[in-house]
């Protein structure tokens, strides 16, 4: 294809997206579109899978049977969400095994929030309330992404996600209303997860060079800072309602902008965790790799069994 032909294809492609048409797997697409989507969608899938670990950490220790089944079902949903998203990514011509390989070798990233440890039961509440709350704000706009399989996967994810945040908030609310010990546990979890949750929206707009392109392709509908502001404005009253304090002395209602002003995020910490030096980066990856490697013989056995069955069938008909 000549350069001029490609250019005209690209223009037609961008025009289709601007007209709100969806792009489907077999449609022609610019290589950059394909690569960006593989990167973002798989990163999203990886986050779901790695995200199972900090919460899975408390399944065996959940304090009641009701909480145990809710947590199990939630972590299971995350496996499901990872699966939907990997499947959607696979439509772009990359296999799940390749994507796992990228995760396991550190080539692909996942959400840094899961590199923080879950040290008390209240962290299950903080994750559901804050982390899933932030995730929903990030994800709902993606139901309108331009790439059809991604948008469809996100519709399914968002539908299931709504129970996650509710169970988290209910959990932390129960603690906040409980004994002084429980309330302290809830406040401590909020203290530890508040800032990392704010970091989930990514770097400041000034430091986020891909925003414009992502907006065009509907991988993003609002900027990082806009989404972060939305999260703060939504969450502060929820904390007040249950008597917990947001750990930000600079937090103040700003009548003029109709939103909260907030303190400075520690971006050094953000980049440190992104670069692999968070408290749990190594542990999370080791756990994922171990699960994958320990499962190799199982996956091999299932394939071998199928091949044997097919061979037998062929021998019978021959």
């Amino acid at each position: 294809m000549s350069e001029a032909q490609i250019k005209s294809l690209e223009e037609e492609f961008e025009a289709r997206i601007a007209r709100n048409e969806k792009i489907e797997p077999k449609d022609w697409m610019p290589e950059k579109y394909r690569k960006t989507h593989i990167r973002q969608m798989s990163q999203h899938a990886h986050s779901e899978i790695v995200g199972m670990l900090p919460e899975g950490n408390w399944i065996t220790r959940a304090p009641s049977l009701r909480r145990k089944v809710a947590l199990l079902a939630k972590v299971q949903d995350e496996a499901g969400h990872g699966l939907y998203l990997y499947s959607a990514t696979e439509t772009l011509g990359v296999s799940r095994d390749e994507l796992f390989e990228q995760l396991h070798t550190g080539k692909a990233k996942y959400s840094s929030i899961f590199n923080y440890p879950t040290v008390t039961w209240a962290d299950m509440g903080a994750i559901g309330w804050l982390v899933d709350g932030a995730a929903i704000i990030n994800q709902v706009p993606l139901c309108g992404a331009s790439y059809g399989p991604y948008a469809r996967a996100m519709v399914r994810v968002c539908k299931e996600e709504s129970f996650h945040q509710r169970q988290g908030y209910e959990l932390i609310l129960t603690l906040a209303k409980g004994t002084p010990e429980q309330k302290e546990m809830a406040q401590d979890a909020l203290n530890r997860f508040w800032w990392p949750a704010l970091m989930m929206f990514g770097p400041r707009d000034d430091d986020s060079p891909n925003t414009e392109q992502s907006m065009k392709w509907k991988l993003k509908r609002k900027t990082n800072d806009e989404l972060r502001q939305q999260f703060i404005d939504q969450t502060v009253p929820q904390a007040e309602l249950i008597g917990l304090t947001i750990p930000d002395p600079d937090l103040k209602w700003n009548e003029d902008k109709g939103g909260y002003d907030s303190g400075k995020i520690n971006w050094d910490e953000f980049w440190q965790v992104v670069k692999g030096h968070g408290p749990c980066n190594k542990k999370r990856m080791n756990t994922r790799v171990a699960a994958w490697e320990n499962g190799q013989w199982v996956r091999d056995a299932a394939i071998a069994h199928r091949e044997k069955q097919e061979q037998r069938k062929m021998n019978k008909t021959a």
């Binding site: 699966l83 499947s87 394939i303 199928r306």
Partner: peptide, 19 residues
């Protein structure tokens, strides 16, 4: 509804049920 991985048809069916 979507897709999934399975070694054989029986496994695909039960996986589909669970997923």
């Amino acid at each position: 509804f979507g897709s999934l991985h399975a070694a054989d048809a029986d496994m695909a069916l039960v996986n589909a049920r669970d997923v």
